[in-house]
Amino acid sequence: MDWVSVPLQTDLQWSLQFARLPELGAALVLSMAVGFERQFRGKQAGVRTHALVGLGSALFMLVSKYGFADLLGTTGIGLDPSRIAAQIVSGIGFLGAGIIVFRSDAVRGLTTAASVWLTAAIGMACGGSLFALAGVVTAAYFLVVFVGPLLSRLTHPVGSAELQIEYRDGQGLLRDIVEVITSRQWRISRLRTGTHRTDPGYVAVFIAAEGGTDSGDLLDAVASVEGVRSVDWADDEDSSS
């Protein structure tokens, strides 16, 4: 063995690791951006979950690409750098499945599960030094999540509205919310309350109303009630009740 080459190889390995830190940094920043949007909406998986998923995916990619470089050329050993990356795609499905909940005849958490899956892809892209693709996909995510509710408002049936409302418990806001709805000539046909699934200090209220003309105006009016944390269409696939 050439003992002189051992310190040189060690120095190269350390320099390679430090050179890959920008990939991890990019994955962390972009993943936190996606997670912040989810957390701002009060969803189950927030900044921490998305940041860990993106950062972990980037590290897996880097290990897949560079972690076995010292074994290349060794007799009897063959490496496929894509194997670890492929396992990330499969493994992230278990985390996403834990976020999806079926309750009250509706599926909840699909969008959040999809955002975690997308964050893993963003982390993998960063780990692969595909920064432009990672940035574009992150921007596309925000485009989708902000344009989606606007389209829902435009396509929501006239004369009916189903809202999912969240507010802090103990403030007596339900009376104010009902007053706002009825004052706009809406008639409440169904109302259901329950403790928020992930934030015990909050109440999740489902309200179905009929007879009005502008469901978008109704949603804005309820959202303007002081103390209400979030309002969304109850048939949205990612309601966090």
Rank of each mutant, 00 (worst) to 15 (best):
A26D: 04
S224H: 15
R83M: 12
V116M: 09
S57N: 00
R187F: 10
T119P: 07
R83G: 09
S230W: 09
G56K: 07
Y141I: 09
S240D: 09
G42H: 05
L150P: 04
R153W: 06
A97R: 09
G56N: 00
T155S: 14
Y167I: 03
L72Y: 08
Q13I: 15
S183K: 10
F131H: 07
L219N: 02
A120L: 00
I188Q: 08
G135D: 12
Y202A: 12
S129E: 11
Q164T: 03
A27H: 02
D176R: 14
R168Q: 12
G128S: 14
I207T: 00
L174G: 04
G194P: 12
V178G: 00
D11K: 11
Y66G: 06
R175T: 10
R38Y: 11
G98Y: 01
V178P: 02
T193D: 12
A125H: 03
G201I: 02
A204G: 04
I92Y: 01
T193F: 07
A85D: 06
T195A: 12
G227F: 00
D105S: 13
V178M: 08
V63Y: 03
G35K: 07
F18V: 15
G73K: 03
G123E: 13
S57H: 00
V89M: 01
A132I: 15
L62E: 06
E179L: 03
P22I: 07
V225N: 01
A140V: 15
A106P: 00
R197T: 07
L8M: 14
G201A: 14
I165R: 01
V225H: 03
A221I: 08
A140G: 15
W3T: 13
G123Y: 10
R192V: 04
T10M: 15
C126V: 03
A134T: 01
L72W: 01
Q171K: 13
A113Y: 01
G98Q: 03
I165H: 07
R184H: 12
G159D: 11
V137I: 14
L24R: 03
H50N: 13
E237M: 13
S31D: 06
A223N: 08
F40I: 05
V34W: 03
Q9C: 09
A208P: 00
S240P: 04
E162L: 00
L12V: 08
D238L: 06
A221W: 09
Y167R: 05
R153S: 11
H50M: 10
G93I: 00
R153M: 14
L219M: 14
A132M: 12
G56I: 06
A134Y: 00
H196Q: 09
A85I: 11
G46L: 10
R153N: 13
V180W: 06
G109S: 04
L72M: 12
A45W: 04
E237S: 14
M124C: 09
Y66E: 07
Q13L: 15
P157N: 10
V4S: 15
R108D: 08
L110K: 07
I181A: 06
V203E: 01
D238P: 05
S5I: 09
V137C: 12
D105L: 12
Q87P: 08
D80T: 00
L151N: 01
I177H: 05
Q164F: 11
F18S: 13
R175N: 07
S241F: 13
S31A: 15
L143C: 11
Y66M: 05
S5Q: 14
I77R: 08
